[in-house]
């Protein structure tokens, strides 16, 4: 009987304040979809950055007239650098083979000789692929005897590092701002509900109703608004994924996959948000407004 009474009160509250409730649902939906969308982008960005770090290499070109012993000496020097994880030797012949693979032309047919130098392809530990560290390592290698040139994608590394940091900062800021906005929005809707029913709350308090009994309809209201906001967010994201896939599939050979987990995350996040915000709002406003009236 208690639960059915509280449920009935919840729906009466929702119906009475249906316009603010609808606004809350839509705004929560939009905010949640942005938060989840940005989180997904962030996840993709981290994955891509990870992949880039995995593939990142420094190429160390050797003087053409080095003997086998001198090459081994360079290799040993490289191996003593702590930041280096893997060293791969590419001989002149192997370089010619790679050239043919990549450009489809045989270097011997074009030039009658192989001008490609032997080199070391170096991989660093993941956490060492920051521009400053890489530059430092490259500089140490450059001055080694027998090393002719050191090459790596310095500009790309700086660019990725810069934008990744910017994206992380902006993304985190936007996510926090939207979470706060959602919290304020649910809180305000509950505040309106509590204000509209302040006399009822005062009556219940005079009859000896406990805090939770009074608060539960408002908490349920917040949960419903949050969950519906989550459903709306899921719908928005689903539509956005389809739109993006439709518009980019002819340009790039990629497609975004809408995982059903996104629905679960959106609805759960909305529900938890609704629960926490409405509980806090009901707690702080129910005594305040009820006191004003009787």
């Amino acid at each position: 009987m208690r639960l059915s009474f509280i449920t009935k009160q919840t729906f009466i509250n929702l119906w009475t304040a249906r316009i603010p409730a609808l606004i809350a649902v839509f705004t929560i939906g939009i905010s949640l979809s942005i938060v989840i969308g940005m989180s997904l982008l962030g996840y993709k960005a981290i994955n891509s950055f990870d992949l880039f770090q995995d593939k990142f290499e420094i190429e160390v070109f050797l003087h053409p007239d080095l003997s086998r012993e001198e090459i081994l000496k360079v290799q040993n020097e490289l191996a003593s650098i702590n930041q280096i994880k893997m060293i791969n030797y590419v001989s002149k012949e192997e370089a010619a083979r790679i050239f043919k693979q990549e450009f489809g032309e045989d270097i011997y047919e074009i030039l009658d000789e192989n001008p490609l130098p032997a080199s070391f392809h170096i991989k660093l530990y993941k956490q060492m692929t920051h521009p400053g560290i890489v530059e430092n390592v490259a500089h140490r290698i450059e001055i080694l005897p027998g090393v002719d040139d050191v090459k790596y994608h310095k500009e790309i590394l700086i660019l990725i590092e810069k934008y990744f940091r910017l994206f992380s900062l902006v993304g985190t800021g936007v996510i926090f701002a939207l979470l706060i906005a959602m919290n304020i929005l649910i809180k305000n809707t509950i505040k309106l509900s509590v204000y509209a029913r302040r006399k009822q709350i005062a009556i219940l308090q005079q009859l000896g109703a406990g805090g939770l009994f009074i608060r539960l309809p408002y908490i349920f209201e917040g949960i419903i608004e949050g969950a519906l906001g989550g459903v709306f967010a899921g719908f928005l994201l689903h539509t956005a994924f389809r739109a993006v896939n439709f518009s980019v599939q002819y340009i790039f050979d990629i497609s975004l996959e809408f995982s059903p987990i996104i629905w679960t995350v959106a609805i759960s996040a909305g529900t938890v948000m609704g629960l926490l915000s409405s509980n806090r709002a009901a707690k702080s406003f129910m005594y305040l407004f009820a006191r004003d009236d009787y």
């Binding site: 009987m1 208690r2 009474f5 219940l204 009859l207 000896g208 109703a209 406990g210 009994f213």
Partner: peptide, 12 residues
Amino acid sequence: VALPLIMTGHSR
């Protein structure tokens, strides 16, 4: 009329 009984958890 039922409110005081509902809030104290009496059966239907």
